[in-house]
Amino acid sequence: MTDISHVTGLDALSQSQAANARQIRNARLSMALRYIVLVVVGIVMLYPLIWLIGASFKTNAEIFGNPGFVPANPTTEGYAKGWETSTPYTFGRFFLNSFLIIVPKVIGTAISCTMVAYGFARFDFPFKKLLFGSVIAILLLPNVVTRIPQYLLFRDLGWLDSFLPLWVPSAFAGDAFFVFMLVQFLRAIPGDMEEAARVDGANSWQTLVFIVVPMLAPALISVCLFQFMWTMNDFLGPLIYISSVDKYPVSLALKLSIDTTEAFEWNRILAMSVLTITPALIVFFMAQKYFIEGISAGGVKG
């Protein structure tokens, strides 16, 4: 009897060992599979970008003949000729225009959205629910439905072919997404410090500037980065409002270069495409933490 129970006990032990071994093997296999999927997906996703960078240094003949990254006869001709453009201006002018659009827009967004978010998160006032509801409504409202009257409004104001239609709506906290994101962020911060400042005699404006803004800094950085990126990428806005080539931002200039560059001069266009995405890439890699946090916090478009 004792023998038998001893034997079955051993048996059970070795069985559980086998089960353990199987589990470990399965876990390793599943881990390996995960890595394989991730690496393959990563390569498929990023290779077009890598290829783009390589191709911008290729000769025109090689662009449609070599799927590899490394150029056979590297040349910077695409950059030199592409930079010149077919207009009287160089691409430098278009980059300058882009930054002239971006900088006031980002500043206006940061200031107006901070004020509005502070109002929503820290005060009670009539129609608060209704007004916050309107933030959500704007978030979901397709721009397409307001675009034509906006255009007519800016025409009547004499703002066409200037940067004003691109700057002004943002300076009035028009990007509801940012208001929403900052309100969420502020609600998570306890109001103790502000209460202390108020007891010490600070008015609400001083509290905002000296207490709230420093605490909001990480979220504000996210706001500025997203606005920078979206404005840099914006195409439809400038397409509708900007008509003189000397005011073109990079996005319009790139489209112009596709239309006007002679056929077979592909590397110029690819080279300028690389330059177009470079600022966004640099900013992203320097500050990726803020992007990922901003997105996870508010949830985003894109």
Binding site: M45, D234, F235, I277
Partner: peptide
């Protein structure tokens, strides 16, 4: 995440 950053670009 990189494609989401660049995806809207004309480039």
């Amino acid at each position: 995440y990189v494609p989401s950053i660049l995806g809207g670009s004309i480039a």
